[in-house]
Nucleic acid binder design. Structure first.
Lengths: 201, 201, 201, 201
DNA sequence: TTCTAAACGAGACGGTACGTCGTGTCTTTGC
DNA sequence: GCAAAGACACGACGTACCGTCTCGTTTAGAA
């Protein structure tokens, strides 16, 4: 939204950055208000004052546009705290993660985006590269430090541990579709750390 | 597929069961061949020799039809072995579960159905009630027995444990979209049982 | 415009005849108001409350639709008078023909339709079969009677004579694009009958 | 096609004449190969290595460009023979005219251009001024000489006579869309000269 | 000879129409 | 009466072209 944006209403070329910004703003608004299925090229073009041609030039599918719009406006916290206590840090990070997931209810933007990614390879790629894989890397890195510090055993597979923690939340959200509450985080972390077997030795 | 199905080509009434069977067969075939997005009422009606009116009467959405078709033809093994050794049983069950998920690749029917369920409440309900929740119940029950037998600690939250195990697999399949291999099952189960912390006490 | 047409505003099926009538009315109105290029499937569908699918089912191209709409609403007089005097009849018929052509100016519906027919085979077919060829047949028939009655020579090629008379008008309208006035009709007919050579023998 | 045209492939300024020549060549080629509807600014710009901006500067519409391209490459013979015998000259001129019209089939460039002119004022103007009116003037002049020489009656309207002869050909080409053969020329000329009425006096 | 302004190529942009497909509602027809 | 058949309104898709504009480059003409 540059200052001159509102004035310039011709049909000619506008700076790409300006167009992109307006398109992402419109797409993000539609996503939050009416859900992912409402994010169509047709509607975004109309509400952003853009043309369909432009959208097709920049994004491979409506889903991919929605994903980028979501990233753009709710810049997800990617910082992973390191207080020295891995248990506390995991609980903190997972708690804010659960808050992110449950924002907008069970049919929130995140579940819709992950869902649509199962049917839209372009969205899937955007999602994995921009969101999912970097976050896993972040978590794994925090766990690696803890492992070096002796808080975790040497033979722990850190990827699997990430899967256990974050996957458990996704499981309730996407597969079981049961209410996901922050209170599960603490027992979840503890159980992952302590194990379920009676004799851990 | 009744014997007379191919002969009877009139527009009059046919037995409901016969129609349903043919519809489900067609939907299942389309699902496996061309994916979930190809399972439209339009196409199923044409290939099953049914009418759209009939489909709308029995199923609330194409996704729900696809889900039921999938259940009907690949009756998922719901039996949970109980050999007395909970670790071995978990490994066995999770291994066949991974096989189910990876059938048809990362874009297999299961991931597509779960994905579409995030956008289609009717499909979500069918999926949860028919598939996801019963399976969780089954797993929890097996764990409960193990807990009673003293193989698991008393303070373990069995729901969370199911989330940790199955959710870890779903995490790789749906969220990370990385190859899901059977070899992860054993370390996954062990890590859930033993815990990750150095001093489990 | 059936009596119940205005009431029935659902999305379901409507009687084909009713839809066709409304579509043709809208197309004809657009043709007269804004010209042939404004007769697009998109606009006709919107203004007629019809769907594009329906238009594509009934008409092969917007031009063909416009042609049929033109025929439907301005049912062109196809009666050819026979007063016994072929000269008088030709003048009468050509005069009303010139009036038809010049209705709406040089860019009237007729010239636009004939023009578009040079680029749209579907429109060309509709125009030839429905309008042009029948009219030529009518004129030729009238000339044939005159020939039998001895008003025209036996060796006159009646097709060519039709071309000379009607073609002369079309020539000014389409090719030269000069004003076409009714006053040319009488000298045109006389010249065709008497010939231009000094010694007609 | 200047000698350095092929070498100079930068984006900077090129001589106007060179650009115009390449554009007209490309437009003419497209017109003959794929028809008038294929002569779009978009495609001509690409194939001529020119930019749309340049095309818009020189031509008001794709149709006008196509017309000029047609004139440029098939310089139509405008010489009208004067052998002293007006009948022979008319037959000769009309015969080559029919050949011109039928080149490229019934949907040849000429009929397409005249057709499009009914919908494109810019093309209409270019066509009338450059082609149609000069040709009529030429024919009329030849007839005027014949009239002075006493081969045609004094009261003959020469404009109408031109309309009768050339219009008859256009009639078959544009309106009736029936095959136009050279064999019609001779009876056409004779009929125009002798008249159709039994008693020409 | 150097500099500046015009014209060029490239192509992004807002629009409009195309032709197709799927949805969900409805009428008609045949058993 | 019910099911097959399928017409219908609607809306999204992806593409093509139009006419306008911005950008960087190059040449032509003025200094």
């Amino acid at each position: 939204m540059s200052t001159s944006a509102a004035v310039r209403r011709g049909r000619g070329r506008r700076p790409a950055a300006e167009v992109r910004a307006e398109v992402l703003a419109a797409a993000g608004r539609i996503l939050l208000e009416d859900g992912l299925t409402a994010v169509t090229f047709e509607r975004v073009a109309k509400e952003a004052g853009a043309s369909k041609t432009t959208l097709y030039k920049w994004w491979p599918s409506p889903g991919a546009l929605a994903a980028e719009a979501y990233f753009a406006q709710s810049q997800p916290l990617l910082v992973f705290p390191d207080s020295g206590d891995v248990r506390a840090d995991l609980i903190a990070q997972l708690t804010s993660f659960v808050r992110l997931l449950t924002a907008g209810g069970a049919a929130g933007p995140v579940s819709q985006l992950i869902g649509a990614a199962q049917l839209d390879p372009d969205l899937a790629r955007a999602w994995s590269e921009t969101y999912a894989l970097p976050r896993r890397e972040l978590g794994r890195e925090r766990l690696r430090v803890a492992q070096e510090q002796g808080q975790l055993r040497q033979d722990v597979d850190l990827d699997i541990m990430v899967d256990q923690l974050w996957g458990a939340c996704y499981h309730r959200l996407l597969v079981l579709r049961v209410p996901l509450e922050e209170s599960v985080v603490e027992p979840l972390v503890d159980q992952a750390l302590r194990g379920a077997a009676r004799h851990s030795a």
